[in-house]
Write a protein that binds this DNA or RNA. Sequence first.
DNA 1: TGCGGAAACTATACGGTGTGAAGTTTTCAT
DNA 2: ATGAAAACTTCACACCGTATAGTTTCCGCA
Lengths: 240, 240
Amino acid sequence: MTTGRTKGPGRRERLRAETTAEIKKVALELMASGGPDAITLRAIAREMGMTANAIYGYFATRDDLVTALINDVYTALADAVDAGWASASAQGPADRIRAWAHAFRDWALANPEGFRLIYGDPVPGYRAPDGGAAPQAAHRVCTGLAGLADAAWPHVQHLYADSEFDWPDFDPGLLAKVRPAYPDLPPAAVALALRIWGHLHGLVSLEVYGHLRTQTLSPDKLFREELAMLVRSIIPSNPI
Amino acid sequence: MTTGRTKGPGRRERLRAETTAEIKKVALELMASGGPDAITLRAIAREMGMTANAIYGYFATRDDLVTALINDVYTALADAVDAGWASASAQGPADRIRAWAHAFRDWALANPEGFRLIYGDPVPGYRAPDGGAAPQAAHRVCTGLAGLADAAWPHVQHLYADSEFDWPDFDPGLLAKVRPAYPDLPPAAVALALRIWGHLHGLVSLEVYGHLRTQTLSPDKLFREELAMLVRSIIPSNPI
DNA sequence: TGCGGAAACTATACGGTGTGAAGTTTTCAT
DNA sequence: ATGAAAACTTCACACCGTATAGTTTCCGCA
């Protein structure tokens, strides 16, 4: 029993990874129970039986922790909508849109705090860094949307006959991700993707933020009808 | 020059009103420059050459101040969209929707912090009280939307022929405000109003929160095209 | 004209937050 | 076994909202 370096990763790093994961887990729990503002280093440390400053060994700053959370949450969202997409990939464009939309909404309603973290004002004064997993997840979501637009495009292109959109209208970074996946996509189809996105995000964010509760008592029905309307406007001869 | 009680309101109350207004003005400036979280009593007091606690003579708590700001801002938004509505009240439903939508978006882009204050997570842990000017302004906005739906209804009702909506689907408080103004409005038309609302809020909130900047470089164009698409889906034979 | 009371404001204090610097303990590699 | 590095604690500071008590200023009325 000379030394203990039996494993590859090393015991130290494993403990470190576990602690890192526990910090994020506790932070997510706090966020789920008390909103994004409940993510305080001291509360996390209290929950873990540590000192607040100990967390600085794992995250340089509180914003870094929030960034890590956003990365995780955003990736989870991307996984959810990708799963929704995959479950309907063999079906027509209308079913794909429906599957994607419901996956998006279901995830958002199941993780409202996460939704706020991604799409709202997560933590006052917080600004997302440039790199990281969050932009990557965002691009996965965008690519999913582009896939919906790509599938629906043959049915809807006549509506965009006089569209004024051109490639320079869109973010180069977005196009760099989307165009390789869907080379035949015209600029107007990207606009269609953004249109679908605007629809879904609009309704879901209204619902998540509670601005719909004061208006309708059946957000479910509203969402389904609105979705049916969107699909019908894209693929006219579509059975609801 | 016996005594100074020459005016009706009284000097004391006038000074009080001025100080109250200055507090709100400074708070709005802080919010505009540093986000909603920059609204701190100490910062306001610092800016005004006072002590933070002096503000407690004007607002019982920080949330009360935020509530007052929300009331003001929400009223300003309602004024803006009402003005947009009034400027096109003599025109057809398509023009009305366009005018209302552009008024809404223009106001939101001119007052992004105000938009966040109203529709986002204004201040962590903040919960709006029941009464006050904000719900009233919200109902003005809703009534404006109902007016759009009412004007467009004859053109679009065939789309809602098999609609499943009924009055119990909607918030009674909302209906109590809307139905007296538009007695002939069927339930599905309220759904149409919410549909327009979902569109506009969705796109504008994406834009205000910067989630559109990473996708399109011409949010203006996207909004106009999306609006044209919405109008076209409501009033088919409509010149863009 | 003077006075009493109310209103406006300050001073002090408490518990909360993020974060920096310094010191201590634990663990690993040699 | 020992030295270095990592993990963690302690103390400190500035900031936040807010409660309490004390002080100053002003208005209305006798």
